[in-house]
C-alpha cells in the first residue's frame, strides 16, 4: 500500500534567536496549514495511507481534522523531546513508508536520519536558519510524496543520497554515537542552556558537510572560505582563532559578524578528525552535548544521509508522464 509519513516538529522556529535577529517565527497555525495542504495533496497524488507522527502539540491531529483522507496518527510515545521524531522515523521504516515529509529545521532532519538513515525525505523548512530543509509549500511537497510513495514517479529518478556527519564521543563513563546533517560545532561553554549558539567568540571549530556561501548559520563560516555543496563528497573543517583569514558571515538570519579563521582543512569522504577536551557540541546549530575534559570527539563526513526527494523534479516527471490528467476516478470523489 502506498504510504506517506508526516512528521512535524512543534518546537521548530521558536527559539531565542528571534530576540536578537529578524528570524522567522513559525506558529502552530502555520505548521498545521502546511501539514493539512500536504495531506490533501498526498491523497490527491496516489497516497493510499498517510501516517502522521503524534506530537506534544497535536499539530498532526489538528491538520487532519475533518479531512476526507486516509490519515492515521501512529501510536508512538510522545515525550516532547527529539526522541519523538527519531521514534516516528523508525516506525515509518517499519511501516514501509514510501516518502517522509518532515517539518522542522536542520535538527529535525537530523533526528529523522537517526531514526531511519535511508529515509526518502522531503524536509520542509519551518526552523530558524535551515540549510538542509527547503522552503516548499505543503501542496507541492505532499504531491511529490504521494507520487513517489505510489510509484507513479520512481524514487531512484528523483532522489539523491545526502551526506551526514558521523560523530562518536568517548567520554569518562560512556560513548555516544550521533549524527549531524549540516554542521557540528565545538563551543567553549559550560552549559547547553538555551541551545542556540549566541556568542561567536565561544565557537572554537566547525565541521561542515554542507557549506555554501548561500548558507546562514555556523556552516556559513566554511561556506564563505571553502565552499562544499550538498552533493559533492566530503566536507570541511575550520578551526577558529587569530592568524588566518577574517570573514564576514551571517551566523544567524539577518545578522552578520566577523570571524577569525585560523585553519581550513578539506575532509575527504570518510576521513576522520579527532578533537579532545572539554567542549559543548552543537549539532546543526544547537548546543546539545557536553564533553568532559577527558572526552574525545571523532568526526567524519559520509555520503550516507537520507535520500532527498527533489520536489520540483518529481512534479515535472509526473507531468511528463501525464500523471495529472483527469481520469474517471476523479469523477468519483477525487
Amino acid at each position: 500500500m502506498s504510504t506517506v509519513g508526516i512528521i512535524v516538529n512543534p518546537n521548530a522556529g521558536k527559539d531565542i534567536r528571534r530576540l536578537v535577529t529578524p528570524a522567522t517565527h513559525t506558529s502552530d497555525v502555520t505548521k498545521v496549514g502546511i501539514v493539512r495542504r500536504a495531506i490533501v495533496a498526498a491523497a490527491e497524488s496516489g497516497a493510499e495511507r498517510i501516517l502522521i507522527a503524534p506530537d506534544t502539540h497535536r499539530l498532526g491531529r489538528r491538520a487532519a481534522d475533518g479531512l476526507d483522507a486516509p490519515v492515521e496518527i501512529v501510536d508512538e510515545p510522545v515525550t516532547g523531546s527529539r526522541f519523538d521524531t527519531i521514534g516516528a522515523a523508525r516506525r515509518f521504516w517499519k511501516e514501509q513508508v514510501g516518502a517522509v515529509i518532515a517539518l522542522g529545521g536542520d535538527g529535525t532532519s537530523r533526528d529523522v536520519a537517526l531514526g531511519w538513515p535511508d529515509a526518502p525525505l522531503i524536509a520542509i523548512s519551518t526552523g530558524t536558519n535551515n540549510v538542509y530543509p527547503v522552503a516548499v509549500d505543503g501542496t507541492s511537497a505532499g504531491a511529490a510524496a504521494g507520487l513517489v510513495a505510489s510509484g507513479i514517479v520512481s524514487v531512484a529518478d528523483v532522489a539523491r543520497r545526502s551526506k551526514k556527519i558521523v560523530v562518536r564521543v568517548d567520554d569518562r563513563d560512556s560513548s555516544v554515537d550521533d549524527v549531524a546533517l549540516v554542521d557540528l560545532a565545538f563551543i567553549d561553554a559550560d552549559f547547553i542552556g538555551a541551545r542556540a549558539v549566541r556568542d561567536p567568540s565561544t565557537i572554537t571549530a566547525v565541521v561542515a558537510a554542507v557549506a555554501t556561501p548561500a548558507s546562514t548559520g555556523l556552516s556559513s563560516i566554511a561556506g564563505r572560505i571553502h565552499p562544499v555543496d550538498r552533493w559533492e563528497s566530503g566536507g570541511v573543517f575550520v578551526r577558529l582563532g587569530a592568524g588566518g583569514r577574517r570573514v564576514r558571515v551571517p551566523l544567524a538570519p539577518g545578522s552578520f559578524t566577523t570571524i577569525d579563521v585560523a585553519e581550513v582543512r578539506p575532509l575527504a569522504e570518510g576521513e576522520s578528525i579527532t578533537l579532545s577536551g572539554r567542549t559543548i557540541l552543537a549539532f546543526d546549530g544547537e548546543r546539545d552535548l557536553a564533553v568532559s575534559p577527558d572526552g574525545t570527539v571523532t568526526v567524519r563526513v559520509e555520503s550516507s544521509g537520507p535520500l532527498v526527494i527533489d520536489v520540483e523534479r518529481t512534479l515535472v516527471r509526473a507531468a511528463s508522464a501525464l500523471a495529472f490528467d483527469h481520469s474517471e476516478k476523479d469523477d468519483h470523489g477525487h
Binding site: 528571534r18 530576540l19 542552556g193
Partner: peptide, 21 residues
Amino acid sequence: MPGVIVDGMDVIAVHEAALEA
C-alpha cells in the same frame, strides 16, 4: 513583538533569553 520559548526548568536558558530581551 518577537516571542521565544525557553526551558523554564533551566535557569541558564532562561537567563540567556532574559539577557537578550
